[in-house]
Design a protein around this nucleic acid. Structure first.
Lengths: 109, 109
DNA sequence: CAGTACTATTATGTTATACAAAGTAGTGAG
DNA sequence: CTCACTACTTTGTATAACATAATAGTACTG
């Protein structure tokens, strides 16, 4: 079982949570995720996700020039995005409870 | 975001954990998962998963007659399966830590 | 015999992430 | 000036998990 499968659905919530508290551009987001321990994250994973989130209206973007290279595309969370983030947090917490109930039972019998 | 995306990768670990502490057949497993709160689980989700796990050697099966219908196919965990289950638990705990670190930071700033 | 509950199987679709490659803009070395 | 390098973004193709839905077969019940 690869760790990557566990990521599904989680990544989106994490990205929203990060964008909520600071505006970021894609490249930076990759670094941040890696700092948090998601070492396998690369651009090819993040950019399509950002495009999807923007298309769905959860985030919006603004392009700004960079002193170090090509333009950066900064992302911000929308009201709808915040709503969905809360939604994610609920589902995530609920999932933890369910899974732990199953896995922890293991030792109690 | 549908809850179903969060399931990915988790389902396999849950199924293994359940099979570890009691032999079950597919239909029964569906009921158990539903009791645990995974209300959307149906046969079409569980049976292919069981076949995959058996093919990979994480579980093995034995067919027994049922008093109430067609034969039941009971599943047992193998040594390799137990190994993978421990593996899953580690990854799952590690994922919880990482995600919570991201999500919870939200309020502390 | 018709209908319903049990049990297993399989085909097809959707979607998130992986993987890999490439394109664009600036900077520094020679 | 150009070559290489780094910062930054984009895109195409593949894989694998889970959803959805339909099929089929056994036993019980009316």
């Amino acid at each position: 079982m690869k760790e990557t499968q566990l990521l599904k659905g989680v990544l989106e919530g994490c990205v929203l949570a990060i964008i909520k508290r600071q505006q970021v551009y894609g490249y930076e987001l990759v670094q941040i995720m890696r700092d948090y321990g998601f070492t396998t994250i690369v651009g090819g994973t993040i950019y399509p996700l950002l495009q999807k989130l923007e298309k769905q209206g959860l985030i919006k973007s603004k392009e700004l020039t960079s002193p170090d290279g090509p333009n950066r595309k900064y992302f911000f969370i929308t009201a709808y995005g915040e709503e969905q983030l809360m939604n994610f947090e609920e589902q995530w917490n609920s999932l933890i409870i369910k899974v732990n109930r199953i896995v922890e039972n293991e030792e109690s019998e």
